[in-house]
Amino acid sequence: MIDPAYQRLGLPAEVSPYAVLRAAVRALHPDTRAVRGFRTARKRFYRQMLCAHAARQAAGDEPNA
């Protein structure tokens, strides 16, 4: 099962991990990005998005499927 937060990014399967990271950063509210105490949670969120994307690429899913 694909993470719902990853699906909301709306990225095709063939994009680079850097593009996934940029989209994940933009998905967060600016106030959330500014809070220093949320740094660990933000890093965990970014890692989850990258792992979901890698799993989708490994499965060979079609874009936006």
Rank of each mutant, 00 (worst) to 15 (best):
V15W: 02
A54Q: 12
D31C: 06
G60W: 00
L9Q: 04
V35F: 06
R56Y: 00
A41T: 12
V20C: 09
A34Y: 04
A65R: 01
P30T: 12
G37I: 05
A59G: 06
A59R: 13
A58H: 09
H29P: 02
M49P: 02
V15P: 03
R22N: 09
M49C: 05
P63M: 13
A54E: 10
A54L: 10
P4G: 02
Q57A: 15
I2E: 13
G60H: 06
A24I: 05
P63H: 14
F38I: 05
R56Q: 13
F45V: 12
Y46I: 07
A13N: 12
E62G: 15
A52Y: 02
L9E: 06
L28W: 04
G10Q: 05
R8Y: 05
I2K: 04
T32N: 05
E62I: 04
E14P: 00
H29K: 14
Q57M: 13
R47Y: 03
C51Y: 02
P30N: 12
P4Y: 09
R8P: 00
A54T: 10
Y6F: 15
A58V: 09
P17N: 15
A58I: 08
A23R: 12
A13W: 02
P12I: 03
A23T: 06
G37W: 00
T40P: 01
V35K: 13
H53V: 08
L11N: 01
L9K: 07
L9V: 01
Q7F: 03
S16R: 04
G37P: 02
V20K: 04
A41E: 07
Y46P: 01
V25G: 05
F45L: 12
A27S: 15
I2P: 14
A58W: 02
E14H: 14
S16N: 03
Y46C: 08
A24T: 10
L9Y: 01
T40H: 09
M1H: 13
D31M: 11
Y18S: 15
L21F: 12
A52F: 03
D31T: 10
D31R: 13
L50W: 07
R36S: 11
P17S: 14
R33N: 08
Y46V: 10
F38P: 01
F45G: 10
R39C: 06
P4T: 07
A54D: 07
V20Q: 07
D3C: 07
T40E: 10
P12W: 04
R47E: 09
A59M: 09
Y6R: 15
T32S: 08
A52K: 02
I2H: 06
Y18D: 15
T32A: 12
A24H: 04
G60I: 01
M49V: 02
A65D: 11
A41K: 11
V35C: 06
P30D: 07
R44D: 11
A23L: 06
A58Q: 13
Q57T: 12
A41P: 00
L11R: 00
